[in-house]
Simulated scan of single mutants.
Amino acid sequence: MRIFMAADHGAYELKEDLVDWIRDQYELEVIDFGVHGPESVDYPDMAARLCRELLDSDPDDRGILLCGTGLGMSMAANRWSGIRAALCHDEYTARLSRQHNNANVLVMGGRVLGIAVARGIVDVWLREAFEGGRHQRRLDKLEQAGKGGGH
């Protein structure tokens, strides 16, 4: 599994921390799409870059998107068919986003979460697996509703 990461200026410091932490903690390959400083960028552009690459990658790969609140990135990412982006603020929502929704993109807000909380969310999100069963039926319905949208 590889992790694709991108952030806008509102969360670049959190992204920088998480890139290094994930590499050290999990020994995973992290592909960092930026940004690498506080200069303003448009979150839809950052989300599009990550989503495009994720959709063309191995199905086991996942993405992490960060912006100030997480709201903009989650809205932008969920416009792509095949992307299931979950805005998580705690470990409980991170756990269920994987178990019930098979989220392939985690979204967090750099201005609303501290580093320790964000690391805890990422830890849970990387460890949890999709439960399938009745949840797959629901995901199939989401995918059908999204046909014709996205890219």
Score class of each variant (00 low, 15 high):
residue 5 M to V: 14
residue 1 M to G: 09
residue 1 M to D: 05
residue 26 Y to D: 05
residue 60 D to A: 12
residue 112 V to G: 03
residue 129 A to Q: 15
residue 21 W to C: 10
residue 11 A to S: 15
residue 77 A to Q: 01
residue 16 E to Q: 13
residue 134 R to C: 09
residue 11 A to G: 15
residue 133 G to T: 03
residue 78 N to R: 13
residue 140 D to P: 07
residue 48 A to C: 12
residue 14 L to V: 04
residue 150 G to N: 08
residue 148 G to R: 01
residue 120 G to E: 10
residue 20 D to K: 15
residue 124 V to A: 13
residue 108 M to Y: 03
residue 70 G to C: 10
residue 93 T to M: 13
residue 65 L to Q: 03
residue 125 W to K: 04
residue 87 L to R: 05
residue 36 H to V: 08
residue 41 V to I: 09
residue 124 V to L: 10
residue 82 G to L: 08
residue 150 G to P: 12
residue 51 C to Q: 11
residue 76 A to D: 08
residue 108 M to R: 04
residue 64 I to A: 10
residue 71 L to K: 12
residue 20 D to E: 14
residue 26 Y to R: 12
residue 13 E to P: 02
residue 46 M to I: 13
residue 84 R to P: 06
residue 62 R to F: 00
residue 6 A to C: 13
residue 29 E to R: 07
residue 144 Q to R: 14
residue 101 N to R: 04
residue 121 I to Q: 07
residue 38 P to Q: 04
residue 145 A to T: 00
residue 109 G to H: 07
residue 131 E to S: 06
residue 102 N to L: 02
residue 25 Q to T: 15
residue 34 G to Q: 09
residue 144 Q to M: 13
residue 122 V to W: 03
residue 55 L to D: 11
residue 125 W to G: 03
residue 112 V to W: 09
residue 69 T to C: 01
residue 52 R to A: 14
residue 136 Q to P: 00
residue 122 V to E: 08
residue 4 F to E: 05
residue 115 I to C: 02
residue 81 S to A: 14
residue 137 R to N: 09
residue 83 I to N: 08
residue 104 N to Q: 08
residue 12 Y to P: 01
residue 40 S to H: 13
residue 126 L to V: 00
residue 104 N to H: 07
residue 66 L to E: 10
residue 70 G to A: 06
residue 119 R to D: 00
residue 22 I to M: 02
residue 98 R to Y: 04
residue 142 L to H: 06
residue 43 Y to N: 02
residue 67 C to S: 14
residue 32 D to E: 06
residue 97 S to N: 07
